[in-house]
């Protein structure tokens, strides 16, 4: 069909390749999810449906370790995402206020560049930094490192949202007798809010599952979920790991879904 020759669906094998890619992407996840409900002690032999490994996570011999690690992870993710999102929001507000200035692209690049730096480099650099200032390693070092690397992730959706916000909105608010503070809380904040929420969720997920940087800067005996899982896996993979992983996946899916619906609602208005 010549009229359709640019339609990608008309290429032979398009469907097969698509399916193959989807399998490669999702098969491992699906296997983990299914086997987390396995009744067997083995991670490869299926013996029927059961929630015993989920129970094991919360009550088993390793439950204390995992609970503490989970508590650390959620605490750090919440604080780090909150602080990083606040900083990113202030940066975005500054960019709006400055209008079109000469170094705008450079400033944008400088905030976003850490996304492209290999994580291991950031990890080493952060560790060296903490050593250089003789900062004792522990929860605090993890938190500070997470705040730092979460900023560009939080900034990404906020700056995307910013594209539609002209500096004339704030000027219009000032013109209509709003103080600078009111212009921010009543005009800029609500307009940026979908981006701020997305930025927070993204930062939260990124912090929650970070392994490399955390592993470098954490103190001895301080664990987050990813480092605890890694530690457990080193002694052999047990099905309870699959249960934890599935729950983590669930958290991510919920957050991504929230983020999706917020941006969709935003597009409608």
């Amino acid at each position: 069909m010549p009229s359709n020759s640019f339609d990608i669906k008309s290429y032979r094998g398009f469907q097969a390749i698509t399916i193959l890619c989807l399998i490669i992407l999702y098969a491992p996840l699906i296997v983990v999810m299914i086997y987390s409900f396995n009744a067997s002690k083995s991670i490869t032999v299926w013996e029927g449906l059961s929630l015993r490994w989920y129970a094991d996570v919360f009550t088993g011999p390793e439950s204390g370790k995992f609970k503490l690690a989970a508590w650390n992870s959620f605490l750090i993710a919440t604080i780090a995402a909150t602080v990083a999102t606040t900083i990113a929001t202030l940066a975005a507000t500054g960019m709006i206020r400055a209008g079109k200035f000469r170094l705008r692209n450079l400033s944008y690049g400088l905030i976003s560049l850490p996304l492209m730096v290999p994580e291991i480099v950031t990890a080493v650099a952060t560790l060296i930094f903490f050593n250089a200032i003789a900062f004792e390693r522990g929860l605090m070092t993890i938190l500070l490192a997470h705040i730092a690397f979460c900023i560009p992730f939080a900034y990404l959706p906020i700056s995307a949202r910013m594209q539609g916000i002209e500096d004339s909105y704030e000027q219009a608010a000032l013109d209509l007798y709003a103080t600078k503070r009111q212009a921010f809380t009543k005009i800029l904040m609500p307009l940026m809010m979908p981006g701020i929420i997305s930025g927070f969720l993204l930062a939260f997920i990124v912090s929650l599952d970070d392994f490399i940087i955390t592993n470098f800067v954490k103190g001895a005996g301080v664990e987050t979920l990813p480092t605890a899982i890694f530690g457990a896996v080193k002694q052999g993979i047990k099905p309870n790991i699959m249960a934890i992983s599935t729950m983590l996946l669930g958290v991510s899916v919920v957050m991504v879904t929230i983020s999706y619906f917020i941006s969709k609602k935003d597009q409608k208005s």
Binding site: Y169, Q171, L191
Partner: peptide, 10 residues
């Protein structure tokens, strides 16, 4: 001011 692009709060 009536702004050139109106600047109505969306």
């Amino acid at each position: 001011t009536v702004f050139q692009n109106y600047a109505l709060f969306p």
